[in-house]
């Protein structure tokens, strides 16, 4: 067993995992907000389209979605790099869950806040931007934190489309060096430490958003 060989290889894989997590999270975040708000739109057609997206991406396997973007799209002439396919697939998959978080949080802002916005003559978009969404944000952060850690772990699927992430690095090491127990234990520790870091990051974010910790009143 040779830690000077294992650790650099795993660290390199962990960086790829981190990169994939953050990129997918960025895609998922944008998708979550846009789709979550469209689900609440006045326009039925838009609402319907957003619902179809959510049901499809939430209702099918993330791994198969990944294979679809990586193996099937090229057949239709859309050739994505492994990382691009992975980030888009995971971003869309987690965006479907995230959009429900956004939708629920926005719906949970008390009716009195909407009424105050009307009474102060805010147009609907401005009311959402200045009054409703900032309050909903506080309620979104804890479930977003869960999704982020889930996403970190889901990036291990990327090892199946040739991406050299942490899981891939562990598997390669086992193939070349043996030491199954030691290596997979180290891989678990790496995931655990990264999850811990992301969790702390989200806690710090929660502290910075007013009302996220202290109820926020009516």
């Amino acid at each position: 067993m040779n830690l000077t060989v294992f650790l650099p290889a795993l660290l390199k894989g962990a960086l790829v995992t981190l990169e994939a997590t953050l990129l997918s999270a960025a895609v998922a975040l944008v998708v979550s907000v846009v789709v979550g708000l469209v689900r609440l739109s006045r326009f039925r057609l838009l609402r319907g389209a957003a619902l179809v997206y959510v049901e499809i991406f939430r209702g099918t396997s993330a791994l198969v979605q990944l294979f679809y973007f990586f193996f099937v799209l090229p057949i239709f002439g859309i050739d994505l790099s492994p990382m691009a396919a992975g980030v888009i697939a995971l971003g869309l998959n987690f965006g479907s869950y995230g959009s429900e978080v956004v939708r629920a949080a926005v719906l949970n802002v008390p009716r009195g806040q909407h009424e105050a916005a009307v009474a102060l003559n805010y147009p609907p978009g401005l009311a959402m931007r200045r009054i409703i969404f900032p309050q909903a944000l506080a309620a979104m952060l804890p479930p977003f934190g869960n999704l982020l850690i889930d996403l970190l772990k889901a990036t291990s699927l990327l090892s199946l489309i040739t991406i050299g992430d942490l899981t891939f690095a562990g598997k390669s090491l086992v193939q070349s060096q043996g030491h199954v127990t030691a290596i997979y234990t180290l891989v678990l520790v790496f995931y655990f430490v990264m999850a811990l870091m992301l969790g702390r990051l989200m806690q710090a974010a929660e502290r910075r958003v007013p009302g996220a910790t202290a109820g926020g009143g009516r």
Binding site: G112, E115, A116, A119, P134, Q135, A138, P210, G216, G217
Partner: peptide
């Protein structure tokens, strides 16, 4: 002006 104030808490 509302019974429950409806100030913006943030």
């Amino acid at each position: 002006v509302f019974q429950h104030f409806n100030l913006f808490p943030h």
